[in-house]
């Protein structure tokens, strides 16, 4: 399994490759796009700024460097849907990026995938987690459009992943999340934009008033056994948000490795499933965090490749993260 790391500048590429990444992914936010379409309409799921490369020249430099190091580079064009007015710019953008050697495009919009494969049949398409590929029929749908890799959305149970892969044709690659950043909801069905003040979902300020449904004037509530109040459930929800979704506020663990969502303990199962690529999330993160994430996954993969048993690997991965209590909570697990 290869480690897929986010990169947002040329200066990050070499340290990430030297840390163990064999695949890089990035986004581009050309000035011309912002000028044409405004600040609130993004070319990919991250806005202008530190998450994206500024221009094609920097992307070309990264591709050249990465290829010299036998590392592939993928470009995100992962908005769930692009409107008609953007197509001329998008198609020409795709041509430009392919001409400089980008190895694959990460896309979620079936219409755009269809159009790109018509215009550039050699383009390699990875289906973004934004496409919400949750079942084998959806895999078949995107395969029929010419996709070569499926990026599984977060939190698909390992048994579900196994069934999906077993029911699919054997010529596809599969990629799974391994580190950093959760989503509360299904990102492919989230109809809000981070452009309008950040994530709508994990704002810790949300307040919930529990309302009981009445039927003919009678309350029909059913309080769960065990006596937990709903507010206690909400308090626990906010703890889960902090630990898993918001990555423990971005603070690293005692060993310097990132906390937050993680699939390290599942590496043996992911390998057995035939997952080829392990995705580290966080294009907007610092190089320090990105590199620490790559090193953490690399060390855990080394343990696996050295023949560590599943239980031993679980224990050692927990030791590496340095927060066994939090690991035991399960609130930082992509796969549980």
């Amino acid at each position: 399994m290869k480690i897929l790391a986010p990169v947002s500048s040329l200066s990050e590429a070499l340290p990430l490759i030297e840390s163990g990444a064999r695949e890089l992914y990035c986004g581009l936010s050309p000035a011309a796009w912002g000028k044409e379409h405004g600040d609130n309409i993004w070319l990919n799921r991250r806005g202008p700024g530190k998450a994206n490369l500024a221009d094609l020249e920097e992307l070309e430099d990264i591709v050249t460097l990465a290829h010299r190091k036998e590392t592939r580079v993928f470009l995100t064009m992962n908005q769930p849907g692009y409107v008609k007015a953007f197509y001329p710019d998008l198609v020409s953008f795709v041509r430009d990026t392919l001409s400089i050697g980008v190895d694959a495009l990460i896309m979620a919009d079936p219409g755009l995938i269809k159009r790109v494969k018509e215009k550039e049949p050699a383009a390699v398409i990875h289906v973004s987690s934004l496409a919400a590929v949750l079942n084998s029929s959806s895999i078949a749908f995107f395969r029929s459009l010419g996709a070569q890799r499926i990026i599984f959305p977060r939190y698909l149970d390992l048994r579900v992943l196994r069934k999906m892969i077993e029911a699919s044709e054997g010529d596809l690659e599969f990629e799974a999340f391994v580190l950093n950043d959760g989503c509360v909801f299904e990102e492919g069905f989230c109809h809000v934009s981070h452009a309008f003040g950040g994530a709508f979902c994990h704002n810790p300020a949300w307040s919930y008033k529990l309302r009981e449904i009445s039927s003919g004037g009678n309350k029909v509530s059913q309080v769960p056994a065990g006596g937990e109040s709903f507010q206690q459930n909400v308090d626990e929800y906010k703890r889960w948000l902090w630990l898993g979704i918001k990555n423990f506020g971005g603070f690293p663990g005692p060993g310097g490795y990132p906390l937050g969502m993680c699939g390290l303990c599942a590496l043996p199962e992911l390998q057995a499933l035939g997952i080829v690529s392990l995705k580290i999330v966080g294009r907007e993160a610092s190089l320090r965090k990105k590199a620490a994430g790559v090193k953490l996954v690399r060390k855990t993969l080394d343990l696996l490749e050295a023949g560590c048993s599943e239980s031993e690997l679980r224990e050692r991965a927990g030791e590496l993260k340095g927060v066994p209590g939090l690991c035991r909570s399960g609130y930082m697990c992509y796969y549980r």
Binding site: G81, V83, K84, P110, G111, K114
Partner: peptide, 18 residues
């Protein structure tokens, strides 16, 4: 700009064909 938020990817010719 406003229109970009009102329209949908469903109105793009590629999606119409799909």
């Amino acid at each position: 700009v406003s229109t970009s938020f009102q329209t949908s990817y469903l109105a793009a010719p590629a999606m119409q064909a799909l």
